[in-house]
Design a protein around this nucleic acid. Structure first.
Lengths: 193, 193, 193, 193
DNA sequence: GATGAATGAGGCTTCATTCAT
DNA sequence: TATGAATGAAGCCTCATTCAT
């Protein structure tokens, strides 16, 4: 299978670096090839076209991203801890891979609607993970049972996404992971006394 | 002043339409000129370059957007109502201008970091508006006084932005404004019982 | 109308020269632009794409070619002289425009079937001219009346085309026009005593 | 000798099929290799380069083509019958191998002048065959003795070539072989009464 | 002899911007 | 001010050929 060949991984890694360093639109295929240490043509033995590189980057990286989070969550006992873990791991992983953070928060958004729909598909398992936690919280009696699930899902994702984007736009100058607890509190308790 | 001349407005309006209909990358300057009923070269009498058109579109539209919201908020007496109004008006305005919704949620994001920083500048008055509401809520004793203000601001903006984007990506098939109340509840009360 | 603008003609003439000198496949658009003294992009203000340049070259040149022949033929009184004129003018024009001869006999054939079908369309008026002469010859009692018209047309065209191609392949070393009379005799009288 | 090895033949046959089905320019070496059931690299053990495949295809196929015609002609007693046989067999063979007809009449012409010169070389034995018939006809007193031999040769070849090309361009919809007799008459008797 | 993964040169076309009128 | 014809830089992708195995 192509995806297990070393060059496939090389190209993916090179793509993340090149996109993070140069931005989406200045990321020529030739630059990615050079960074990956392969010929331009070799790219096309592993990817259909440039867009396919981008989608693949996202799939690979998001696959790992979600898996890491899922694994960590599974070790936790209740919805409260699971939600905290989701937030922490979400922040932790992006904080520890600056290139990936830039790519997911800024560069990959510079794509057309079709590509964005594909990216959304890749994100579905992550959103399902959120849903599971919320449902569990309701069953545990921790969360209110009148919650509008899709809305809660968008709320949680929106908060995490915006806080990470803000951190990236501020050049990653502060400690993202430290915010996890406060964000957790805000999500669970809201603004009210 | 250039911005008050009729052609300036014409071009701005044409840009919104063209971008919404064709997407950011298929929105050539010549297409905008044609829709605006001016020559290509005329564009450059009013705007420095293509990016300047985009920033200007955002400034013009967001200026009106924020002003509408501010005006509505000023009529309200307390933070709770102000926050609800903010949400409602945010949704209402985008729900009533499909072109604008597509442009702000999808197309304008397909730009590089520099442009994004400029857009963020344009958004500052809106974020200040949020800050004011939260501070007022704290003073009123409605909200907790240990809130991390920048974080709350990002949270609120993140929720609104993500819910609108979701609605646009789902082809604006459901009633966005109707969600305002549920979103308000989530923000103020969080998930917990 | 674009076709009457000077740049259109310039590009057509440049294309003939470049194709004749470099061959069809080595005739980059940039080479044609350079020879025409315009920018690469200017080509695309006058032609849809590279293939369109080729078809246009053929249309322009063949249009003149056929017109020249038609005009000359109209001055002749009978089918015998008309046929001789057709042959003479066919040879004469190509013999006097070496570039054109190379382009029509060698280079333009290096194109796919679709392009070839378009070229055939351009040739139709020429073939009609042949038909008219043959029919006239039959009416005059000069030619046999059991002639298979399409076949005769192909025969005449095939002979002219092959003799010109042979002359081009032999690097135009002999006098093509001088052959006209012999060819005329062969067509009218065949091989037999 | 390489040419007698089975893979050589396989590749030649595959090339004819691939070129006929896809056209000259869409006939990648890898496609030919696949159809021949060999690896891409194997092609280069039997052929110098892609052009060599094409020339070899033509040599192989035209060799058989001319041989068939020669054999048939040898059985005939006089120039008249020999010429008719030449025409009939020329048509017959191409009519019975549609792939070959497409390749010789359309696809192989999409090559540069050098390749065309090589192809002409391959055709020489065929042209010699024509010469022999014409000379024989003159000796027999059948044909006029003032014939310009090279011109007659070009005439006969031009007619056959054009009529076959016309038939291929018309998608081989009519019966080519049936035309042989009429063509024979035209060549021997010309248009005149 | 046979393989097929890897190579890398090469060109058509778009479109933001300019400038002579 | 306004025009719009002209500019020209820049990049994705294909595919004939090679060579280590």
């Amino acid at each position: 299978m192509k995806k297990n060949k070393p060059k496939y991984k090389q190209i993916i890694e090179a793509a993340v670096e090149v996109i993070a360093e140069n931005g989406y639109h200045a990321s020529q295929v030739s630059k990615i090839a050079k960074k990956a240490g392969v010929a331009d043509g070799t790219i096309y033995l592993y990817f259909k076209n440039k867009e396919d590189i981008l989608v693949s980057v996202f799939k690979e990286k998001m696959g790992q991203f979600v898996e890491q989070i899922s694994t960590s969550i599974d070790k936790k006992q209740n919805a409260r801890e699971k939600l905290l873990t989701l937030i922490e791991k979400h922040y932790y992983q992006l904080a520890n891979d600056h290139h990936l953070a830039i790519v997911t928060q800024l560069e990959l958004r510079q794509s057309n609607k079709d590509l964005r729909l594909q990216i959304n598909n890749v994100l579905k398992p992550y959103l399902t993970e959120i849903d599971k936690i919320v449902n569990e919280g309701i069953e545990e009696g921790l969360f209110r049972d009148d919650l509008n699930l899709p809305l809660v899902r968008q709320m949680i994702f929106g908060i995490l996404d915006e806080t990470v984007t803000n951190w990236v736009m501020k050049d990653q100058k502060y400690d993202l992971v430290k915010q996890a607890s406060a964000v957790h509190t805000l999500i669970t308790n809201g603004l009210s006394k």
